[in-house]
Design a protein around this nucleic acid. Structure first.
Length: 270
DNA sequence: AAAGACACCTGTCCGC
DNA sequence: TGCGGACAGGTGTCTT
């Protein structure tokens, strides 16, 4: 489910309930997620959560002595619930706070992760090699053009490459390319600098707007309070194969690129 | 070095 | 109603 806007929405939703609160207990009902939840996660018990942050698609719960990293995978969501609320089948991990609330990870497919690290996040094995955040100034046209040199992969797969830029997943890659009028099939090194300048802006705009709308709920994403995101109604191409393009009326096309579905308008995108 | 395939897992939907 | 197969928002790892 979650791309950058959904993870950011989650962070913003849980922050008021977790920042400054102490962790009273951690309950792991199903340790087998993408990686087995480490026993060292219990080191977080008794610690105060100083800050909720995000890097790429990781939710970071920072304490004085270490950081808990939560990844939502394809089907994960993190909610704030009353500690006493009975867990569902796929509620795998609870981080129980001293307020009577708990952060509850729900993840049917178990592609998500809960990890504990004492090292600096910037150099962490899973994060150190990642590209810049798309909503920062470090992500600009010169940077993107530099990355694209000698890359024959399609521009859609290129912008989904986390070593190039983080947070752009399957929905927002298609949407950004539609907004920029660029064909997803074009090779990354065959896109002009002028069009990369536009694409850079479109990626920022699409992600920012999706965050404003609380993310996109396709099937199971929910925000911290359990509400869906509302960006789905603003999708122009994703999931709209066979429907008319909102701009020109031509039918939206679906294809596979790197095992993932891509949606685009063959008339508006060149 | 880069590109492509595969793996992980459950739920849902569609056609027969 | 049941069954098989395809598909789903991610990403590390292995093979070409």
């Amino acid at each position: 489910m979650p791309e950058l806007p959904e993870v950011e929405t989650t962070c913003r939703g849980i922050a008021p309930h977790t920042e400054g609160k102490e962790v009273k207990a951690i309950v792991v009902r199903q340790p087998k997620l993408r990686w087995v939840v480490p026993n060292s996660i219990q080191e977080m018990v008794g610690q105060r959560i100083n800050k909720v942050a995000r890097r790429a698609k990781y939710v970071l719960l920072e304490t004085d002595i270490g950081t808990t990293m939560v990844h939502l995978g394809m089907s994960g969501s993190l909610r704030v619930v009353d500690d006493s609320l009975a867990p569902d089948k796929h509620d795998h991990v609870d981080i129980i706070l001293d307020t009577g609330k708990a952060l509850r990870l729900h993840d049917p497919r178990r592609f998500g992760a809960v990890l504990w690290t004492q090292e600096s996040i910037d150099t962490h094995k899973l994060i150190g090699h990642l590209g810049p955040e798309p909503l920062t100034d470090a992500f600009d046209v010169d940077y993107l053009v530099g990355c694209a040199a000698r890359r024959s992969v399609s521009v859609k797969q290129f912008i989904m490459d986390a070593q190039v830029v983080v947070g752009v997943g399957n929905i927002y890659a298609s949407e950004s390319l539609f907004m920029a009028g660029i064909s997803p099939k074009r090779a990354a090194n065959k896109v002009s600098k002028k069009r990369y300048a536009l694409l850079t802006q479109c990626i920022k705009q699409v992600l920012a707007r999706a965050i404003e709308q609380g993310g996109t709920t396709l099937r199971d994403f929910v925000q911290a309070e359990g509400k869906p995101g509302y960006f789905k109604q603003e999708l122009n191409v994703y999931g709209r194969a066979g429907e008319p393009c909102n701009t020109c009326g031509e039918l939206v096309v679906q294809l596979k690129q790197g095992q993932r579905s891509t949606f685009y308008c063959g008339s508006c995108q060149r």
